[in-house]
Design a protein around this nucleic acid. Structure first.
Ligand SMILES: [Mn+2]
Ligand SMILES: [Mn+2]
Ligand SMILES: [Zn+2]
Ligand SMILES: [Zn+2]
Lengths: 147, 147
DNA sequence: ATTGAGATTGAAAATAATTCTCAATATCAA
DNA sequence: TTGATATTGAGAATTATTTTCAATCTCAAT
């Protein structure tokens, strides 16, 4: 639960650094889906010297290890979260940008079907729903031409 | 089938231009999922003066009209396709970048469930599977440490 | 504990993707 | 035909991410 980073790192012949540990720790403690800058800000509170480049580098590494997931939530930048125990998916509000997580076992069924039918090996599943949350449900996606 | 752009445009008090028509036409004729530069290249063959900025501007407009969809296929840039009659989803190979489209009616079931349970209004659904296609299935995601 | 090969980092530059600015041009209702 | 104004092209600007490289760590072998 905390040594899996050490494990992955050394198994790969890489080196354990304070930066890598801090970045993973911060991501694990943070609920929600942080972008690189937001993560950098929080990481700096633990160690003000860590650079944004190292945040990006470490995120790429943690993704390879399967310890971190990146999501595209409809914006021009990525959002990151520590890999959860059970897979989950996302809804994001086009107006207020709120993110709601949900589970749906039937998605795994679809994944198995596609894997079989297309003879592919599936390693990642991203389901993103977007629209308007309960608070924002009013106007639609396109043109509200009323006053 | 060809006048729906005129319709959407004029209904919005906008203006019909050669550029907008060409960009939509090219996208409709192109099978596959083009990024902005690739689309620009093809559009230029019809009209060499059209700028990349206009391609981006028009894609944004066509998305608002629901005539075009943008997908994030695991790369740092978007890919675009003309809105299909029936919804479909995507698998992309992490090695060769090939894209396979598939349908899965159970996804719509999940969408309805989430909409009901979370009281949200869902306007877009993106399901992206990634992994290795039949040709590329061999090494895993990370490190192949063999020769 | 010391050493050294080489992995990692910070800072800044570079690259990539997309958006914005603005003067020139095109559209379309009158 | 005209005029108000929407749109465009070109390039600058912005945003997100990656790369470069010299300085600094890490860790296995002394
Ligand atoms: Mn999540
Ligand atoms: Mn498609
Ligand atoms: Zn909302
Ligand atoms: Zn492949």
């Amino acid at each position: 639960m905390e040594t899996d980073l050490h494990q992955a790192i050394t198994a790969s012949g890489l080196r354990m650094t304070r930066q890598r540990q801090v970045i993973l720790d911060v991501l694990r403690q943070s609920h929600g889906h942080l972008d690189a800058e937001a993560l950098h800000d929080r990481v700096r509170q633990q160690d003000p010297r860590i650079s944004l480049a190292t945040v990006y580098r470490t995120l790429a590494l943690l993704k390879e290890f399967g310890l971190v997931q990146e999501h595209r939530l409809g914006e021009e930048h990525g959002h990151f979260e520590a890999a959860p125990q059970a897979p989950h998916y996302h809804f994001t509000c086009l107006k207020c940008r709120k993110v709601i997580e949900f589970q749906a076992s039937s998605v795994q069924r679809v994944v198995r079907e596609v894997a079989a039918k297309e003879s592919v090996q599936i390693t990642d599943v991203h389901l993103l729903l977007s629209g308007y949350c309960a608070d924002c449900s009013r106007e639609g996606v396109e043109g509200n031409h009323e006053t």
